[in-house]
């Protein structure tokens, strides 16, 4: 009843409410059309992705057999068993080393350094991450292969790759520990925790998913690297027998065969590229799933 007593607002005519001048119609129309046209630019990004995947898959899949994937006999030049297994071995070692080089640095930067020192440490990590991979490869070539006299060996490739991956692990560890909410830190230290207790019991469980994510991302970046690997170890047809024996990385196989005049070699390069693509895209999807779940968990914890 009370509502009824409120006088109805008199609706002004359209002419008063809306400016119908040509300029306004142009403004509104422009906004509407640009809103329809700009999303088409997504095609510039999405079509090449689909094309890469389609082209590589359609040219590699018809000839890809289990034999190609697993055969390690050096008398069979058209098999990828050696590079696949070597790549797995080298990536495991390189990831371990990169975590050893980067993780503690990231945690130390986030937790123990003064703001000023931390910002310098971050600047240097960013510098290293921005260094072109071929320059890191030069360090591996001149340092490990020539100066240390190791030649084209697995250890040279692994070390070079781990140096390349270090800044990514460093940055993600730093970011994960820096983004732990302040009140959780204060609660831990307020309850009398020693720094190592805080890091191991409080910080690590919270930061772990994000760090794991960063490690996966670093693996995805590292496994696709060509320049540092080809400059430090390539050209082997057998599985490495030790750290100081030559090794063949998957990307090196692509680089050595892509412009070959022999169709079978090009097919081998395409198969290697397909495997690489599957691994990298798979890792990227895993990272996405982890980070989505992690975000949900964070919201549950801290809201």
């Amino acid at each position: 009843m009370a509502l009824a007593s409120v006088p109805a607002i008199e609706t002004p005519s359209d002419d008063l409410l809306f400016d119908r001048s040509a300029r306004t119609r142009w403004r509104i129309g422009f906004d509407r059309w640009i809103g329809r046209l700009l999303p088409l630019l997504f095609l510039v990004a999405i079509l090449p992705i689909l094309d890469v995947v389609y082209y590589i898959a359609s040219s590699a899949l018809p000839t890809l057999t289990l034999h190609v994937l697993t055969d390690t006999n050096f008398r069979d030049p058209d098999a990828l068993g050696v590079p696949i297994i070597t790549t797995a071995e080298m990536m495991t070692l390189a990831t371990g080393l990169a975590v050893a080089f980067g993780l503690f640095g990231g945690i130390a930067t986030a937790e123990f350094l003064s703001d000023r020192a931390a910002s310098w440490a971050r600047t240097f990590a960013n510098m290293l991450a921005g260094t072109p991979s071929v320059v890191v490869g030069y360090l591996g070539y001149f340092g490990f292969c020539l100066y240390f006299g190791w030649g084209y060996t697995m250890i040279a490739g692994v070390l070079t790759l781990s140096l390349f991956m270090t800044p990514y692990i460093f940055r993600i560890a730093d970011l994960a520990f820096s983004s732990i909410p302040r009140h959780i830190r204060e609660a831990a230290y307020g309850a009398g925790a020693h720094p190592h207790q805080y890091i191991l019991r409080v910080g690590a469980p919270i930061a772990f998913p994000q760090i794991l994510n960063g490690v996966f991302l670093a693996v995805a970046i590292g496994v696709g690297e060509t320049a540092p690997i080809v400059l430090t170890t390539h050209g082997s047809v057998i599985l490495p027998t030790g750290l100081f024996s030559p090794a063949q990385f998957l990307t090196a196989t692509i680089w050595e065969n892509f412009s070959s005049p022999f169709a079978s070699a090009v097919a081998l390069a395409l198969q290697a590229a397909f495997i690489l693509l599957v691994v990298v895209v798979g890792l990227n999807i895993v990272v996405r799933i982890i980070s989505a779940r992690y975000r949900k968990r964070l919201e549950g914890l801290f809201q």
Binding site: I49, D51, V52, Y55, I56, A220, V223, G224, E225, T226, T251, I254, W255, F258, A269, L270, A273, L276, L277, V280, V281, L283, N284
Partner: peptide, 10 residues
């Protein structure tokens, strides 16, 4: 995420 060598061969 696509490795540069895959872009290259493509």
């Amino acid at each position: 995420g696509i490795p540069s060598v895959v872009y290259g061969i493509w």
